[in-house]
């Protein structure tokens, strides 16, 4: 047999290698090296962390390819980059750059309010956000090889990350108890592809790796998401908006490994300096929330 590239198995496979790890947002090559030294499994290269995207306002787009390339040169771990929802040309550009994963992300301003990118035809794998099981399975149906629950990016408030992880994982637990004749109605209720509903039921988990994102700011937040049942965590603003990024980054990496050991968590949580200030989600006007982007 000849060598086969870009199969779904290798796209999904890279995410399997990231499990039990932390993916960190970085905006400079120096940040990327700090993240790698702290034990990040991958970095997300972008111009502004979500907290600054919120503060800056305006249209948030794919980052400058020059910045992404410099970050790719700076580290040996995988580099991810974000494109706007539905902006398949930004995705083509990111693929041409050779990034290892594309995040079709609600953190950027959506380019299409009805359709996401058809991801199967790309050689590079995609990760997409989801707030519930239906959204997750629709994204996988379009070709996403990894899912992250959305949370509310750039807030440092973990409450939405918890809500979305509980929604996805709870719905899978419910699905496992349904008899076969109820699966089509379940698929209809969640607007989810029927075959993926059946596969999720028999696996007892999403068919692809599922990380948590959006509001993780402390080692305890990261361990909380792991105990809820996700495979790993994304940390956006939580590291480089804190007082001592290198220390905090290393502590969050350790927390994701030892998430079931409170004694270890207590030790690694000591003296981390100031966490990001954060913004309570309940104080944010509805129009400024970003998790609702995506269809």
């Amino acid at each position: 047999m000849e060598q086969e590239v870009a199969t779904f198995a290798v796209k999904k496979g890279l995410a399997q290698m990231l499990k039990g790890g932390v993916i960190m947002d970085v905006v400079t090559p120096e940040h990327a090296r700090i993240a790698e030294d702290a034990g990040a499994v991958a970095v997300m290269a972008l111009e502004r962390v979500p907290a600054d995207i919120r503060a800056h306002g305006g249209v948030a787009r794919m980052s400058d390819p020059e910045l992404i390339l410099k970050i790719m040169e700076a580290v040996t771990i995988p580099v991810m980059a974000k494109c706007r929802i539905g902006h398949f040309v930004e995705a083509q550009i990111l693929e041409a750059l050779g990034v290892d994963y594309i995040d079709e992300s609600e953190v950027l301003t959506p380019a299409d309010e009805e359709h996401h990118i058809y991801k199967h035809t790309f050689k590079v794998p995609f990760v997409c956000g989801a707030r519930n099981l239906g959204e997750a399975l629709r994204r996988i149906g379009e070709g996403a090889a990894m899912i992250r629950t959305k949370g509310e990016a750039g807030t440092g408030d973990v409450v939405e990350a918890v809500r979305h992880a509980r929604a996805v994982l709870g719905e899978i637990r419910r699905l496992q108890n349904l008899p076969e004749e109820e699966l089509m109605a379940f698929a209809k209720q969640w607007s989810a592809p029927y075959e993926l509903v059946c596969e999720t039921r028999s696996l007892g988990r999403l068919p692809v790796v599922n990380f948590a994102a959006g509001g993780v700011a402390t080692p305890a937040d990261a361990a909380l998401m792991m105990q809820l049942g996700v495979d790993g965590v994304f940390v956006g603003s939580g590291i480089f908006k804190s007082g001592d990024p290198a220390r905090r980054a290393a502590a969050i990496v350790k927390a994701v490994t030892h998430y079931q050991e409170p004694a270890v968590l207590a030790e690694i949580s000591r003296n981390l300096g100031e966490p990001m200030v954060g913004r309570q989600i309940s104080s944010i006007p509805e129009g400024e929330l970003i998790a609702g982007r995506g269809w």
């Binding site: 870009a6 290798v10 040996t76 995988p78 290892d100 590079v124």
Partner: peptide, 15 residues
Amino acid sequence: VRNAFGRQVNSFEID
């Protein structure tokens, strides 16, 4: 040699 075949787009399967 790490990442000897290139980046993720070069990941592959073979018998």
